[in-house]
């Protein structure tokens, strides 16, 4: 009985989702990028790091689908492995933001008006006051460039995003009568936060999560571009762009290809976010 009701809900979700072009295109693009990243673990046309100087700077061909770079390395293989880097850095950074930000936001909302609420919110404001990229550059330059520090630098800026979002959403829920009813039933703030608040803000968090994910991809690319992201020989899209920049007159495809990869990923995630918002929150869609 209870199973069938859930199955119905899932079915309804997919029915609405299939009608949202944003969702369909976004999900397909995102799935493509994730598949490329997964594929790179088991197969790439060439070893991404193998140099082949005689065949350097080749254009698109049957042998090298997306050409070769200045050391003759296969661009397609690098793009595949680069997807891995981008996704993992952005994903862990979002995870950091959700893992720290959401509990903080729920805590602040449960203790609204208290000193803890004040501290959490002021802390958020402060992080927001920093130009995100600037502090990321600062952190990675002092602690040394690399994927881990890039994750931390990007993740820190996800914390206030999720803390603010979940606090604001939770606050509006706390005034709702069903929360009052739960309080009248003797449930404590922690329990209400987990049982009632969190499930009701989950949709919002999912949508924001995809947006932050796409911003994370862009930030990782920017950090890698200035040499503060993942270090060679691990390929990353931003690093590929940095290398291609000086060669743009000779081999424009070296700059175009990684750029398109970034755009496809970010576009896919953004469309997916929009689509999810439409599907998960029918109220919003009606208003738009």
């Amino acid at each position: 009985m209870s199973l069938s009701a859930e199955a119905l809900e899932t079915q309804a979700f997919w029915r609405t989702a299939a009608r949202s072009p944003s969702f369909v295109i976004g999900a397909l693009l995102s799935a493509l990028v994730v598949l490329a990243a997964l594929l790179s673990f088991v197969w790439t046309p060439y070893d991404y790091a193998a140099q082949d100087i005689p065949n350097k700077l080749q254009g698109l061909s049957a042998a090298h689908w997306l050409g070769t770079d200045q050391y003759g390395r296969d661009v397609f293989s690098q793009v595949l492995v680069g997807a891995r880097t981008s996704i993992s850095v952005a994903l862990v950074a979002v995870g950091l933001g959700v893992g720290v930000g959401v509990p903080l936001g729920l805590l602040a909302a449960a203790l609204r008006g208290s000193l803890i609420d004040e501290i959490v919110m002021r802390g958020n404001d402060l992080i927001f006051a920093f130009p995100a990229l600037l502090l990321a550059i600062l952190i990675t330059s002092v602690f040394g460039p690399g994927a881990i520090n890039a994750i931390i630098a990007i993740g820190i800026f996800n914390i206030p995003v999720f803390a603010r979002l979940s606090r604001a959403a939770a606050l509006s829920l706390w005034t709702r009568e069903f929360i009052l009813a739960a309080r009248a039933a003797g449930k404590g703030a922690a329990r209400i936060s987990v049982e009632h608040i969190l499930p009701n803000i989950l949709n919002l968090l999912i949508v924001q999560g995809t947006i932050q994910f796409s911003l994370g991809i862009l930030a990782e690319a920017a950090l890698a571009y200035v040499g503060l992201g993942a270090q060679p020989p691990v390929p990353s899209w931003g690093k590929m762009l940095a290398d291609a920049q000086t060669l743009v007159a000779l081999a424009p495809h070296l700059a175009i290809v990684p750029g398109l990869a970034i755009i496809a990923t970010v576009l896919g995630l953004n469309l997916l976010g929009d689509g999810l918002r439409d599907v998960l929150d029918p109220r919003l869609r009606r208003e738009r």
Partner: peptide
């Protein structure tokens, strides 16, 4: 307790 708003007084995600 019984509240005013029959729409707002239930968590929409629970049975």
């Amino acid at each position: 307790v019984v509240f005013q708003d029959p729409y707002g007084s239930f968590d929409p995600r629970h049975r």
